[in-house]
Amino acid sequence: MSATLAVILVLAVGTYAFRLVGPVLHGRVTLPARAQELLSAGAVVLLVALLATGALTEGGGFAGWARPAGVLAGGVLAWRRAPFVVVVLGAAAVTAALRAAGLE
């Protein structure tokens, strides 16, 4: 079991170190405005890639049709400027309904 504890601690320390990069550098290193802008853009690029892979893939393969169909429904709702709650619950509801109907 000590191996499992080691996994947890290594993951915890490593992850916290990643997360500290920004707060530690902030105020010590002055970033040019262009770099600051690229960081914000980079965060959005990461989030879009995360939502795309999260919507379409599972364990390196295709996630099935129900999930991306739900996310697509959420995307259409968001595009039509539906409230946040409607977007999120709509996506989950479409996916749940498709699964209930037997579509994976």
Binding site: L51, G70, G74, W79, V88, L89
Partner: peptide, 15 residues
């Protein structure tokens, strides 16, 4: 359908 909710959260926030 919760697995669809999280990508949808990100869609709503980045759109």
């Amino acid at each position: 359908g919760l697995d669809a909710a999280f990508p949808a959260v990100l869609v709503a926030l980045v759109l």
